[in-house]
Computed example of a mutant assay.
Amino acid sequence: MSAALLRNTFKCINLRLNTTAFTKRNICTSPLRCKWRNTGSADVERTLLKRDNLPAHYQLIYRAPLEKYVTWTKNVSTFTVSVIALIAGYQLATSINFMNLVRKIDVGVLVSNEADLYFFAAGFVLINLAIRIFVFKYPLRIYKSGDKYVAVFGSQMPVGTVKHYFQRGQIAEYKNVLNPWSHVIFKLDKRSSMLMIDYFKTPSEFHEMFQERQT
């Protein structure tokens, strides 16, 4: 009887200790967000500050995921648009007809009619336009220094970034019934941007941007 009571007592103590440890544990909602908030995050932040050419007093508060995939997609977009533009420019600058060239190539495995290549080209242009709009609206990082914020976007060129400065309070939801992603689109001053709240350093950093600037 005494042994059974002791076993039950130890079980209750262990359960209480495990519950306390679980409630105090900092659980991240995203593995990628945990990755840049670990013990080496200070070194990562210094590296990103240097890469973005920002003063040391700025603090990283937001880092979007999939930066490498966005950059790779943008570079593929640049390549395809450049090839299409070169072919179109060559056709306009010379007397050679593009359709005469494709007739010499077996395109039966791709299209049933040579004229369909123009539809493929138009589709590529539309897809690349959508990619460019996404890059324009997708901030890679956001830094703050007091009431000042700077959002870093990928450049439309193959390399480089573009900075967009705004103040605290200069953010609002961008509501549009035609936009299926309206719940993640915000206006940073006059620039519409896609923000994912899970990738802010803390939830308070996101809500703090909406507060009116102190005078």
Rank of each mutant, 00 (worst) to 15 (best):
L49N: 01
A4W: 07
Q156S: 12
L129W: 13
T94M: 07
Q167E: 15
R51I: 04
W181C: 12
T47P: 04
D106Y: 07
L48P: 04
P203T: 05
I133A: 10
A151D: 01
I61S: 00
R25P: 04
R25G: 05
S30Y: 03
F124K: 06
M196F: 15
V70D: 03
K104Q: 15
L117V: 08
L117G: 03
K68S: 10
N75P: 05
T94H: 10
G89V: 01
N113Y: 10
T161W: 05
L126R: 13
R132T: 06
I96G: 07
R46T: 08
Y143W: 03
I105D: 10
R37A: 02
P158S: 03
F79R: 11
V109W: 12
R168G: 05
K137P: 01
T78M: 07
S204E: 12
S95D: 14
I142E: 01
S155H: 02
K24D: 12
R63A: 00
N18R: 15
L60R: 00
C34H: 10
G108W: 03
I127G: 09
K104D: 12
A85G: 07
R141T: 00
G154S: 08
P158W: 01
C12F: 06
R132S: 14
F200Y: 12
T80Q: 08
C34K: 10
V102K: 01
F186T: 01
K175M: 08
N14H: 07
R37T: 03
Q214W: 05
L54D: 02
M157G: 06
W181S: 12
A64E: 01
H207T: 14
Q211C: 05
T23L: 14
K104M: 15
N100G: 09
N18V: 06
L60K: 00
R103E: 15
T20F: 11
R16S: 14
S77Q: 03
Q167W: 09
R168N: 05
G169E: 06
I13F: 14
R33D: 03
W36F: 03
H183Q: 11
